[in-house]
Computed example of a mutant assay.
Amino acid sequence: MSDTVSFGYEDVAPEEKTARVRGVFSNVASKYDLMNDAMSGGLHRRWKDRFVRRVKPRKGEHILDMAGGTGDIAFRMVDSDAAITVADINPEMLAVGMERAAKRGLDGLVWTEANAETLQFPDRFFDAYTIAFGIRNVTDIPKALREAHRVLKRGGRFFCLEFSTTEWPGFGEVYDAYSHHLVPKLGQALAGDADSYRYLIESIRRFPDMPTFERMIGEAGFVQTKVEPLLGGLVAIHSGWKI
């Protein structure tokens, strides 16, 4: 790992990024889902539905939903009767998720504070590992991918939903203009926090493109890696298998 990592458009020390990302999500936790609707026009719901259809959770499986604090992915899998552990580095995000679960009468989920780079779970424990819109906020992404591989059983499935770079001509420019100019203003209006949402947009720009991230997944030990672009690659579902 290099001496510096990206925090939006800034390059900072790894320990500083970890602390600052934790602060961002502490600030936005209570408004996180509202802002997702505002920023994506509600499309994030369809992306997450499609993502879970790709995961195909099954009864009796053990699934780790990493960076899943508010419960959006876990709630979509809970009817499968899989044993789902929701993990997040941020306790405020977990608190929002647990409150939402209680309101829905969902008491079968396990909630735990965890760092994707140093998971406390044993080797070969989970049947599937999911992470949605979380991997770009990890300080050491290759290390987190290796940890995902470690905690999966042989035959285990890795799925990641993340923003990427659209390949549709013209669309990328329109989205860039929208996200850079309007999203921070939405963050200020709806969550009282423009800076955190400015970071979230900048972090998308600094995230590896689809071929690069697929290669990183392979380098972590996964095979049969695959990328499914959505909106031309604005968002992508990445997957791989552990054998």
Rank of each mutant, 00 (worst) to 15 (best):
N27I: 08
T165V: 08
L190A: 08
V12F: 03
G68M: 09
K153H: 03
C160V: 05
D195C: 00
A82W: 03
A236W: 02
F126A: 01
A82E: 06
L34Y: 06
I84K: 03
W47L: 06
P229M: 10
K48C: 00
N115E: 01
L109V: 12
A67Q: 02
G233Q: 10
I237P: 11
T166W: 10
K56M: 11
D72L: 09
E228P: 14
E117G: 12
A19I: 13
L161R: 06
R50V: 07
F133A: 04
K226M: 06
G69Y: 08
E162Y: 12
Q188R: 12
V174M: 14
A177K: 13
I63D: 04
E219V: 07
S2I: 05
A128N: 03
A101T: 09
R100I: 00
F171H: 11
G68Q: 05
F126R: 00
A83E: 10
M77F: 06
T139H: 03
K143E: 13
Y32M: 06
I73R: 00
L230G: 08
I141C: 10
P122H: 10
G60L: 12
V24R: 00
A128I: 11
V138W: 01
Y199Q: 13
G60H: 02
A194E: 11
A29H: 14
K242V: 09
A194W: 07
D88P: 10
S26G: 04
D140R: 01
G108L: 03
F125N: 02
A148S: 08
Q120K: 15
L119G: 04
L94R: 02
E10I: 09
G218T: 10
A13V: 11
F126E: 04
L64R: 00
H180I: 15
D3F: 02
S6G: 07
H149S: 02
A114G: 01
A220I: 03
L34I: 11
I237T: 07
M210N: 05
S80M: 10
M39Y: 03
A132I: 12
G240S: 08
R136M: 02
T212P: 11
R45Y: 14
F213Q: 08
G233P: 10
E15Y: 07
G105K: 05
G23P: 01
V78L: 07
T139C: 13
T112K: 15
D88Q: 06
V151L: 06
S80P: 10
S40T: 15
F51M: 01
A13I: 06
D123R: 02
T85I: 11
D195K: 05
E99S: 03
N115P: 01
V12G: 02
L182P: 10
V96T: 04
K242A: 04
T166G: 06
T130Y: 00
M39Q: 07
R54A: 02
